[in-house]
């Protein structure tokens, strides 16, 4: 059973140093790379009342863990200027936002449109599923294989995904392992 958190719930979490116990920033946005199926980094705001944007970014490889209550980093040096970050974090390609994309099975059935990405709690940005708005207007959660085809407007998921559509995050947390086992990955 996996603990999961949505991408939108990560926004606003404090970024805390393990070494110093200080909240050095808070999460402004999640940089998601759909081809890799993972969060590659976070953009940041300053902490505090008059919080503005922080120019530094947080590449996923310097994140110790994305938790329910905080994003943990070793120390403040984990926050780097965009120029020093990997390209997909420092200057993410535009027009690759997965939100709003249609999710199609390999057989051509639409499972809905992506509303949010679902991140594994305790990882440094592993995305295990999507929250989708179903064709009938409801909300559902679908697990993801670790890799999948993405075009920019649609993504194609294995046929088996249909058997693992869940109503809530708890259900998805229970379904992810079994889904990936079924796919043999």
């Amino acid at each position: 059973m996996k603990l999961l958190v949505s991408g939108s719930a990560i926004r606003g979490l404090p970024v805390v140093t393990i070494d110093g116990g200080e909240d050095v920033a808070e999460v402004r946005d999640v940089i998601y790379q759909p081809e890799a199926g993972r969060v590659v980094g976070l953009t940041l705001n300053k902490r505090g009342f008059l919080a503005g944007r922080r120019s530094e970014v947080l590449p996923a490889e310097t994140i110790q863990a994305i938790g329910r209550d905080a994003v943990m980093v070793a120390d403040e040096r984990s926050l780097v200027p965009p120029d020093d970050a990997p390209g997909e974090v420092g200057a993410p390609p535009s027009g690759r936002d997965v939100i709003g994309n249609e999710v199609l099975t390999e057989a051509g059935a639409s499972l809905g449109r992506v509303k949010d990405v679902i991140v594994l709690v305790g990882s440094n940005g592993e995305v295990v599923g999507y929250e989708v708005e179903t064709p009938s207007g409801g909300t559902a959660y679908i697990p993801l294989p670790s890799q999948l085809a993405v075009s920019g407007s649609a993504l194609v998921v294995p046929e088996a995904t249909q058997d693992f559509v869940e109503d809530d995050l708890v259900g998805l947390g229970a379904a992810v392992d079994e889904f990936r086992r079924r796919l043999g990955i």
């Binding site: 805390v16 140093t17 070494d19 110093g20 116990g21 200080e22 909240d23």
Partner: peptide
């Protein structure tokens, strides 16, 4: 115990 500061005490999970 791993660290402590104005925001929190950080401990090994």
């Amino acid at each position: 115990l791993l660290g402590a500061g104005s925001f929190a005490v950080v401990v090994k999970a």
